[in-house]
Design a protein around this nucleic acid. Structure first.
Lengths: 401, 401
DNA sequence: CTCATTAAGTCAAGTGTCTTGACTTATTAC
DNA sequence: GTAATAAGTCAAGACACTTGACTTAATGAG
């Protein structure tokens, strides 16, 4: 009687799935193209004018879009463009890093409204959880002071921290990141905030940020090479962040390189960690960021040596990414000081030959992305916004409800 | 007046999209789980019994599913399982290789019904096009002799050949593959056969085959490392083949490795091409395949040396794939002789440490896949079947019609 | 200045597909 | 023998997109 082999199947869909998808498509179109009229939207989405009208009416009621001044565009009735209402939705982004945690609140179009940071005491989650929850609570109350109805329009909390997740330790871990990676962060944050919580690694967060407001805006195949304390790649494939089986896709820093009879992970050679070691400085020093920016601007010699060496590895990393992912473009971003990133970009060129070298390219093979200590927190916040509003296969299925 | 910036947007969907998706979900569920009753399908897909009944009735009318003997499963009315009807659809697969072209006809469940091959004369497309079109025509007429209504149920022609596509030449090209890669193959095949034609590289085809009938059956994140004349990776991400911007994703053989001050593409070190060079044999020799299989079985010394060297590079390739794609499993397949693949698998272990090394794995990190000279042609044929029947985001959208 | 033309957008009825809830059928467990 | 359980059907209903005619508002040609 009890056969009970579990049956695996994808979920079906129904009218609600259709409707949810079409709403998302409208929002996406307005995000990519700016304000559009109902007729524009109907043509672009292949839906009928009537359907678009109904959806736009509903989105307007929900406070997600609003009409602008009618514009005359030649013959025919003037069109009424609609735009996204930034205050239509908010999300909180949380970055957990080795010795600091940052939080931001962003709106529907990815503008940062509130930001704050706090030092993380040593000892990992047992000491840090309260700091984080307090920081998030502070951001929420500040947000409530800045805009109306923020709590009602809060779609979620996105967290980002260095990966990889769920893997036995690498050993060199002065800041207990491994303890954080094993800690039930999702559950703790959900319980502590009552919000919908998502988690991604810092490179994925950077890519999410680039897709919402940066160089990957409106691009469906892009890879962000993220240079931070470690290095990682955030993958935008088919217009969505690709996570892999366990959220660890893109951990390029863990690629082992063999030379002189020993193996070294890529990120031991090209990352801020390697720079700090090269300079023999204390990574926990709060003034370090500014000091390195300054050194990079002045063309300091010891920085130069590191830049040259790191550029070799980053050049190869870009070649690797192009060869394996065939993206439209690669974006170099990081939580590194901007001057340093600029030096790196200058030193990386010219790129290695690869399949990305083809006639008729419209985008450069390599583009600079955000180099801002807050970009990871922004990307963390962009996660819930994207989950809630971007068109995705999963959002159509019944089991997404 | 003529604003005419092109508006970019994803396509919306409607009832037909919903219905098309649900039909695909049914077929997918039957493919993965074998025969299922309407009630089983309703639970698995989260649709109602009534909806499933209607869809199954329609699929049965279309000849895609058929009922089996009712089975008693304890209390309650016995259930009537439905299964996929293999003869419900057919597709032709075409492999274009350096000196040979192979074609197969497969049915809805991926069984090969007819196969044939022909030598490709030197000179590239100008001499080879006729051979290929004749081969396909022959397969079609043989198929018509084996099954009823084959032409009516033919969903398309899938072609596979070594990549990369659309890239300036690599130089070493005695078999004019570059000419083939530049040739408007899709157009020629479409015009010459009247069928819907798709094109992928050989590694992608191997992955498509593994997903339909091999080790990746029912798995949503898998990478096939394909060892052929070159090497490549076929990427199954989120349950679909990932192609990249230009169909070149996964071209791992083109990854440049730096050693001793010079750079070498990975596939110069680990591929059949490297083996042929190592053995100083002529790759065009038609008996080569059997001879190498024989040598591998006998434990030949010169093969051994190559296996040991290639295993080092393949071991690293697997590590690289695990680190960048975070798949559930890696499948080693190839158009190499089976005995050779077995030797390679034995020589590759133990694998390098990576993020794939985790507690609670259910699948092995590395699995053997098909090692059959016909697997690429089979995968090529599986492409149209998958496009026509597998659940995919694109199939829901209005512009897919 | 007038009026045909063009285009945006609305109205109201129509259509397709899934859902609901009651019902029928067939089997097992007690 | 009868209650419980489960598969599957029936018929009406709900929902979201579509259709085609209509209204509104502008331009441009004569």
């Amino acid at each position: 009687m009890n056969d009970s082999r579990p049956i695996r199947a994808k979920s079906g869909t129904n009218h609600e799935g259709t409707s949810a998808h079409n709403r998302r498509v409208m929002i996406d179109a307005l995000r990519i193209n700016g304000a559009l009229s109902r007729a524009d939207l109907a043509r672009a989405t292949r839906l009928t004018k009537q359907t678009v009208s109904n959806i736009i009416e509903e989105l307007e009621r929900d406070g997600l879009v609003s009409s602008q001044e009618a514009v005359r565009r030649g013959r025919g009735q003037p069109s009424t463009p609609y735009r996204l209402v930034p205050e239509g939705a908010f999300a909180i982004g949380l970055q957990i890093d080795r010795h600091v945690t940052r939080a931001v609140a962003v709106d529907l179009v990815g503008s940062v409204l509130v930001r704050d940071e706090a030092g993380l005491p040593p000892g990992g989650p047992s000491n840090g959880t309260k700091v984080i929850l307090d920081l998030v609570a502070g951001i929420r109350s500040k947000l409530a002071g800045v805009v109306q109805q923020s709590e009602k329009r809060l779609v979620g909390l996105g967290a980002a921290m260095p990966g990889p997740f769920g893997v036995a330790g690498s050993g060199d871990d002065p800041w207990m990141m491994e303890a954080w990676q094993k800690f039930p962060l999702l559950e703790t944050l959900t319980a502590g905030t009552g919000l919908d919580v998502g988690l991604q690694n810092d490179a994925a967060a950077a890519a999410t940020a680039e897709r919402m407001v940066g160089a990957a805006h409106g691009i469906d195949h892009a890879v962000c090479l993220f240079v931070g304390y470690g290095i990682g790649a955030g993958l935008i494939l088919n217009g969505e962040l690709y996570r892999g089986t366990n959220g660890n896709a893109g951990e390029i820093g863990m690629v082992l390189l063999f030379a002189d009879g020993k193996s070294t992970p890529l990120e031991h050679r090209a990352s801020l960690a390697s720079l700090y070691q090269h300079l023999s400085v204390d990574p926990a020093d709060p003034g370090l960021y500014a000091r390195i920016n300054d050194l990079a601007l002045r063309g300091d010699q010891s920085i130069d040596a590191w830049v040259e060496a790191a550029a070799v590895d980053l050049r190869w990393s870009i070649h690797l990414i192009e060869t394996l992912f065939d993206p439209q473009t690669v974006i170099l971003c990081g939580s590194a000081p901007e001057a340093l990133v600029n030096r790196l970009i200058a030193a990386i060129g010219p790129l290695l030959p690869s399949i990305a070298e083809r006639r008729g390219r419209t985008l450069p093979r390599l583009q600079p992305g955000m180099a801002d200590p807050w970009s990871v927190a922004l990307g963390a916040a962009a996660g819930p916004i994207s989950r809630a509003f971007d068109p995705r296969f999963a959002a159509i299925l019944k089991d997404s409800l």
